[in-house]
Design a protein around this nucleic acid. Structure first.
Lengths: 372, 372
DNA sequence: CTGAAAGCGCTTACAG
DNA sequence: CTGAAAGCGCTTACAG
């Protein structure tokens, strides 16, 4: 072993007892007299005994290692996730093996296989659109969104969307552009659904899908936000802080001051959100709690599992759980340039297409419209 | 084992040979006749044999696992690093265990200890200021900067700084503010050193340390960049894209167009750099190569190492290596508002403090000054 | 070229 | 309450 410490037998010899007794004392399983157990524990601590995971793994079939599968490790959320999972796992006595798949589905399958070949006791998977988590053969906890079929631990993305929308609504925004990347993402759809549901008839909400736009206009193309402002949009609710950043800089570049002329909000409270000017209003997930729940479920499933029955058909899973998101209000959101508080007039407004105006006019603003 | 596949003996039985022969055939070590070896390999593949790492680890003292130590996992560079290391490691047959320490030195020591307790064969450490990598007791590869004493693999940060400076110099900038976080960072100092050295007497270069500023003005305080522009600075060379982002938005917010009125550059090509408006000019590390070198060095050291001699006093390490950085020119940098090409007049200019001007005046611009 | 034997460090029934 | 024995799956000298 590449280890320095003493082994179990060393402690046994030192104390003149059997290895079995030492093992029992340390694990608290077999019956060992209180005083002997205490003596053993003391000696073990003194000698700096650390059990060999390899020996234990070979015997018990448990490696005390969890796999963390990130289909797209470039995801800026990764640091948050990895940190939270690592903390939860190590607190529970587990190590975390990372597996990346650079967005590629085939690579991902390979990555999961490698993890299995390494005998992880379970894995945490953060899926991206199209991820198939079939017969993995070990307990799996999926971190995604509650709307995903199957057992998952997730932030309440829908609720997060509602919070963002309520915030914007209270500020007086009546024309908001929601910016998402891809409609195939459950997370994004939940967030957007929450936003729309909270606005209800109180605002005209339009959605811009970046990926669709980029397919035509090219990667990194302008989002055309200045035009949107000209059309009367006063708020840009982005499904991720990365998009919010893109929106913010595009607006600023066009000479549109945020938040005076337009508000921008994001999601996830990514690293740059507090340092950007103006700082981004966002909704953050409670990663610590999500990770804790995921790992706890995993540990439980691992404990209940018979190490013998591996292989296909034994995908144990985490219980469903939903963790509230937290709204973080910063400077990027404020009341719209022309504050309009006439929510009563909304119900029967029925224009289908938003009127083009250079700036949100005081009285003719097309508020209260809703998307078809 | 939490495994599905067949074990070695299963293959041996199937073929009517001994386990030893199977092992030898598969590893190519002991002498086994070519045809039997082939038959064994075929059967192993057919049966989907995957060796038990636990069994092997117990016997050989090698776990085939590398530890990845990130003193500050929140580091936005983390995804790049983790991805590159994971790829290099898995290509070499190693798994990657992550260890986080949330910026805390004590936690870090704990994290490294946990890794050792898990018998990693080696580790990759990305240190942050003040990290002590002492007698870890296993091969270690440090990813930092060549100026760090000890064996490291690193990007040529100094060279990267030079590239940034040459770029800015060629554009015509003669008054640049370098923005760093903390002078205790070797990486930052190298980058800054490279910048200064490339500018030489060709420009007046001043340094702004964010951390020092924030200690007085508070976390997230304005950097006062508009004032700097008023003082005649036309370029802001940031030591990280995170700072560049902060600079960019602060300038934009102040109504200073980038790059027309001021250029901004960063480092590391972080995820948002290409999508921001204007996209950030930056210098990126070749993480793939750095990771490859680090892992290769580790694997070599592990191979040469006697599994028996563990413990204190055996910190093998990676050979020193330096990987060039690559300049990525995007829209955030351009010629300064008033192009001034009079490098000849520079040598004997000697004002100590820059003259305060509202805008870089055509002829009186305090170019060619150098810091004391 | 091939196989029998031992043993890596641990835990788990099973006796005593 | 304590210990002797067996065995997890592999690899490595060592015989043959």
């Amino acid at each position: 072993m590449a280890r320095s410490g003493p082994k179990l037998t060393r402690i046994a010899r030192t104390l003149g007892v059997s290895a079995a007794t030492v093992s029992n004392a340390l694990s608290g399983k077999g019956r060992v007299s209180a005083e002997l157990a205490e003596k053993i524990r003391a000696t073990a601590a003194e000698l700096g005994y650390v059990p060999s995971l390899a020996g234990r793994a070979l015997r018990t079939g448990r490696t005390a290692v969890l796999g963390l599968v990130l289909p797209d490790i470039a995801n800026p959320l990764f640091p948050q996730i990895a940190q939270a999972i690592e903390l939860a796992a190590s607190s529970a006595g587990y190590g975390v093996l990372i597996a990346d798949s650079r967005g590629d589905v085939a690579t991902q399958t390979k990555a999961i296989e490698r993890l299995i070949d390494r005998d992880v006791d379970g894995m945490v998977i953060v899926p991206r659109r199209g991820t198939r988590i079939a017969d993995v053969g070990c307990p799996v906890a999926v971190i995604d969104t509650p709307s995903t079929p199957g057992n998952t631990v997730a932030a309440d993305h829908w609720g997060g969307g509602r919070q963002i929308a309520e915030h914007l609504k209270a500020l007086g925004h009546r024309r908001v552009l929601v910016i998402g990347n891809n409609p195939a993402s459950n997370v994004q759809n939940d967030r957007i659904g929450g936003i729309r549901s909270a606005f209800g008839e109180a605002a005209f909400v339009e959605i811009l899908w970046i990926e669709a736009l980029e397919r035509e206009a090219g990667k990194g193309c302008p989002l055309g936000l200045a035009e949107k402002v000209a059309e009367g949009f006063t708020a840009f609710a982005c499904v991720s802080d990365l998009h919010a950043l893109r929106a913010l800089t595009e607006l600023q570049r066009a000479g549109i001051n945020v938040p005076e002329k337009a508000s921008v909000t994001g999601f996830d409270d990514l690293i740059w959100s507090p340092v950007v000017t103006p700082a981004l209003t966002t909704a953050r997930m409670d990663m610590t709690r999500i990770a804790a729940i995921a790992v706890e479920a995993l540990v439980k499933a691992i404990g209940e599992r018979d190490p013998a029955d591996a292989g296909i058909g034994a995908p144990v899973t985490a219980e469903n759980a939903e963790v509230p998101m937290q709204l973080v209000v910063r400077q990027s959101s404020a009341a719209p340039p022309t504050t309009q508080f006439q929510p009563q007039t909304i119900a029967n407004a029925g224009t289908t297409a938003p009127a083009r105006t250079t700036a949100p006019a005081r009285t003719t603003a097309p508020e209260g419209e809703h998307q078809s």
